[in-house]
Amino acid sequence: MKSQTSNSRFLESSSSAYLDTLRICAALSVLIYHVYFHWLPADKITVAFDRISHTAVVVFFVLSGYVIAYTTSNKNNSANDYFIARFSKLYSIVLPAIILTGIAQYLIKLFSPELILNYGRNAGISHYIISALFCNEIWFYSAAPQLNMPLWSLSFEFWYYVIFGLFYYRKFQRSSLLLAIGACLIAGPKILLMMPIWLFGYFAYKIPQKFVLNKFMTWCAVSISILATFILVYFVKPLSDLGTYPLVYASQFLTDWMIGAAIAIGLYFLPTTDARAKMNNTALSIRKIADLTFPLYVLHLPLIILWDTFLKLDKNISQNIWKPIIGVLILSGLMGVFLERYKYLYVSFFTRLLKTLKMNQRKN
């Protein structure tokens, strides 16, 4: 074993493939859970995927923190580059998803009004506006449109980006630190309670690897972290049910911390190198699929409900449930590819916005 203390490390192809595979598995578990919950709420598969789907969000938080640590360490982005990249990524998918959700609500009311009884809570226009501003989960508020409840986690992630960015790129002035503290006060206790999970991912990359294990031992450590995660999910009972007020989606934060720590430990041991290297073809193929998991996560629930509105599964539901799973995968994938082509519009918008804010700040 040799010492490795550099804070700038690059991922090997196998490590990149592992991270992307985690993203794919997490997104698919959420999709499968919501499809089964919609058509077969009491099915064994639905019960099995119930807690896994929430664990998938914990996975996303850990991965998000890890990726931010990687990009801020190796790309040396400025504060402007950081915020433009983060906001463009979120809004290029979330804004169309909110519009799709509103269209879905209108069509369901028109063609399948009985479904709106199940998804009618938080359906007012104010909830769409609040969700577009990523304020639907601040403090003890929980107001994502029920037709697209996965938007709750994007509110959490948005504030992690903001809080981290304001702190990481702060100037050594009291006013700069006050901005970061102000963002924490706006986000509120729910979001802050789950932030350690995001930070576990961040520090899994940032903490230097004191010793580099051989490949076999490295992947043994990663495998142990996966096993520990499954043990925690299935054998450690949360102190509170998910959705319990006032913490709502943060109500299981203690067990979520443990699960997040287990996942992060696995990421810490991922093989890295001192020099950037090209990913192999297998890793590149997995990356292309993984890049579609974000649109899948944000678009899948309204697509599921629209599928039920226009393509009923009245007979042999358990045998035909694969149809909406495959259908929604294809639809969200095509929409994701389409939306990615216009991401530059969001980059341009936020670039101009930040320039305008800076100019106004100089004038004042």
Rank of each mutant, 00 (worst) to 15 (best):
residue 212 V to L: 15
residue 93 I to Y: 03
residue 314 D to N: 15
residue 137 E to M: 12
residue 139 W to C: 11
residue 268 Y to T: 08
residue 340 E to R: 11
residue 207 I to D: 10
residue 254 L to N: 12
residue 169 Y to F: 07
residue 193 L to M: 13
residue 215 K to F: 11
residue 89 K to V: 07
residue 183 A to T: 02
residue 65 G to T: 08
residue 4 Q to P: 07
residue 237 K to R: 14
residue 359 M to T: 10
residue 208 P to S: 07
residue 288 K to R: 13
residue 143 A to H: 01
residue 238 P to N: 05
residue 241 D to C: 04
residue 19 L to R: 09
residue 174 R to V: 15
residue 333 G to W: 07
residue 219 W to P: 01
residue 287 R to C: 11
residue 270 L to T: 06
residue 184 C to H: 05
residue 165 G to E: 00
residue 37 F to S: 15
residue 119 Y to R: 05
residue 363 K to V: 12
residue 204 A to K: 00
residue 332 S to F: 05
residue 142 S to H: 13
residue 54 H to S: 15
residue 122 N to E: 10
residue 72 T to E: 06
residue 198 W to Q: 04
residue 274 D to E: 14
residue 261 A to G: 07
residue 297 Y to W: 11
residue 292 L to Q: 09
residue 16 S to F: 10
residue 22 L to D: 02
residue 197 I to Y: 03
residue 332 S to D: 04
residue 69 A to L: 02
residue 55 T to L: 14
residue 190 K to G: 08
residue 120 G to I: 01
residue 234 Y to I: 06
residue 62 V to C: 03
residue 315 K to F: 15
residue 299 L to M: 10
residue 117 L to P: 07
residue 227 L to S: 12
residue 76 N to W: 13
residue 54 H to D: 14
residue 205 Y to L: 03
residue 210 K to A: 15
residue 275 A to W: 11
residue 64 S to N: 04
residue 343 K to N: 14
residue 150 P to F: 00
residue 149 M to K: 10
residue 69 A to K: 00
residue 190 K to H: 05
residue 211 F to K: 15
residue 33 Y to Q: 05
residue 16 S to N: 12
residue 71 T to N: 14
residue 146 Q to F: 08
residue 321 I to Q: 07
residue 75 K to E: 14
residue 143 A to V: 02
residue 4 Q to A: 15
residue 61 F to Q: 01
residue 204 A to Y: 00
